[in-house]
């Protein structure tokens, strides 16, 4: 029993870190533009397809090289998204901002489907195998996910705290008008934010390949659950995303002990609705 609980805890924490990264990735855009990026799950999918589908499988490049090339591609995707979607939508009403990002996501989805077909595939030998600690058996992919997520979060924190661009991003988050008056180029800021967000999407997409394989719907659930993570932790607040992600991941994992596992996916949505009704500011959120 103890072993089961520990194993569930590890896989829950790993999933939690994935949700946390998803939360961070869309919170960055939320903070820079005030838009909720509903196309983010498609960008995650795109990242996985570019890295695993284009550079690794089709061109046969080694994994590190394909990853670095994918970063370049995803930065361009981020710039494109900022110019085509985020900047034009910034001044429109909620219905159009939501539908604009959703439709952009559908365009990416169709593009991937036309280029790669709808058959799922996987990257053989990527983060497979298990680690034994005593009698506990842990999938290596879970360990990798936790390590990579911690590195990404740390790097992002250092970037936000020390560099001039990072500081500008935090200024825009606090007050868009004032930062514009102080000479911060908000549009440029959005472009950079979108690029960073896309790169994080790529990392998420790559990390979850061992869990979900590369398929068109690989990220639809983690995309929605990432929203739950953000709401649970505190919307638009990066440390909140991490706490929220881990809470959602652990609750979801633990729910298997109580209810049939087919309803596992519904748990995150239920948590989302409960938090929105009872504490919309989240666990760490401040009162606005």
């Amino acid at each position: 029993m103890l072993n089961t609980i520990l194993q569930l805890a590890v896989s829950g924490a790993a999933l939690g870190f994935v949700y946390a990264l998803v939360g961070i990735e869309y919170s960055l855009i939320w903070n820079a533009t005030g838009l909720l990026n509903f196309s983010h799950d498609k960008i995650i999918t795109l990242g996985a397809y570019v890295a695993a589908g284009l550079f690794f499988t089709k061109m046969g490049l080694p994994i590190p090289v394909s990853f670095i090339l994918s970063i370049v591609v995803m930065i361009l995707v981020g710039f494109l998204m900022a110019t085509v979607v985020l900047n034009p939508l910034r001044k429109m009403t909620t219905i159009f901002t939501i539908m604009g990002t959703i439709l952009f996501g559908k365009m990416i989805y169709e593009l991937i489907r036309l280029l790669y077909g709808s058959a799922p595939f996987t990257v053989p030998g990527l983060m497979t195998g298990t680690v034994h600690i005593g009698s506990l058996v842990i999938a290596k992919s879970n360990v990798y996910i936790i390590v990579i997520a911690v590195i990404v979060v740390a790097a992002l924190q250092i970037f936000m705290q020390t560099t001039k661009t990072g500081k500008a991003m935090r200024c825009v988050q606090q007050n868009k008008k004032a930062s514009e008056l102080m000479g911060i180029n908000v549009k440029q800021n959005i472009r950079i934010t979108a690029a960073i967000s896309s790169v994080i999407c790529l990392i998420i997409g790559f990390m979850v390949i061992p869990l979900y394989t590369v398929s068109l719907s690989m990220a639809s659930m983690i995309g929605l659950k990432g929203f739950a993570a953000g709401v649970v932790g505190g919307f638009g607040f990066l440390p909140g995303c991490i706490v929220g992600g881990i809470v959602v991941g652990l609750i979801e994992s633990a729910s298997v002990l109580v209810i049939p596992s087919v309803y596992k996916d519904a748990v995150a949505f239920l948590v989302l609705i409960i938090f929105l009704l009872i504490k919309p500011t989240g666990i760490l959120g401040k009162k606005s």
Binding site: L36, T94, I98, L224, F227, A228, V231, F235, P260, V262, Y263, D265, A266, F269, L270, L272, I273, L276, L277, P280
Partner: peptide, 28 residues
Amino acid sequence: YPSLRISGVYLSLTTIAFGEIVRLVLNN
């Protein structure tokens, strides 16, 4: 009732979550 407390993107998230829960329950 949720729409009285929350609005904008939060409300759209609630309605998405509702739709997904319905689909999961019907499926299972």
